[in-house]
Design a protein around this nucleic acid. Structure first.
Lengths: 115, 115
DNA sequence: GTATATACCCAACAAATTTAGGTATCCTTC
DNA sequence: GAAGGATACCTAAATTTGTTGGGTATATAC
């Protein structure tokens, strides 16, 4: 994860964010993820492809994701979906990250409201 | 930063948190910082000394902190305070981190519309 | 025919943190 | 007075994670 203006911040949350996006969208491919993240955060945050693809491969290796490849408009797309194991892992990791974010907010003496 | 139960999360925020604590407490020493963080987060997050001391030394090198050493009860304490430069930097870094946290929150909470 | 967007990827490097120690003092308990 | 815990500083090696800086290929618009 990279703040497009101020450089790298909040590392270690990329994999969890990817899992969460896949939980909500069921089926996504890498390039799509990078676009969605930029759109959702109003271009404030970006997942670079060089960070994303190795992360996806690692999640695949860990058995949290499954893939199917398709060709659309002559271009190859590798779709990712959550495996059964991936679904439970996602819940755990999202909870852990949210708790961590709350702790950081406490330390910064900040209120952040969303959702 | 380390979540004491679920492992490492939210990396890259340690230095900013230290700066913020020094902004609010004016004068702190390393060991004290590790205790305060555990207390403030109800033992959910911990800054390990092995992460903290190098981080403090780096902030010192960058000119954001100043030190004074004291001996209390026969033990040496190295107190840190924000330099002038450190005060402005703190404001900037805290803002950047808060924006990043908001982005992460959005990514963890928001649902996408299909289009 | 050049630029931009789409779509995948890797290797070399850097940064931040963990793991796993070390040193020393003070205080309490056996 | 030995042992263990808390206080208080620290470092080195390894790992994780992500950046920088590329590469390949197809499609579309100008």
């Amino acid at each position: 994860m990279k703040n497009t203006e101020t450089g790298p911040v909040v590392k270690g949350s990329l994999a969890t964010i990817v899992l969460k996006l896949l939980e909500q969208n069921d089926r996504m491919y890498g390039y799509e993820i990078t676009k969605v993240v930029r759109e959702m955060t109003d271009n404030k945050m970006a997942i670079t492809e060089a960070a994303l693809y190795p992360a996806l491969h690692k999640l695949l290796e860990e058995g949290l994701l499954e893939t199917t490849t398709e060709t659309v408009d002559g271009r190859r797309r590798k779709y990712y979906t959550l495996s059964k194991k991936g679904k439970t892992e996602t819940a755990d990791r999202v909870n852990a990250l949210q708790e961590a974010l709350i702790s950081v907010q406490i330390l910064l003496n900040t209120k952040l409201s969303h959702g």
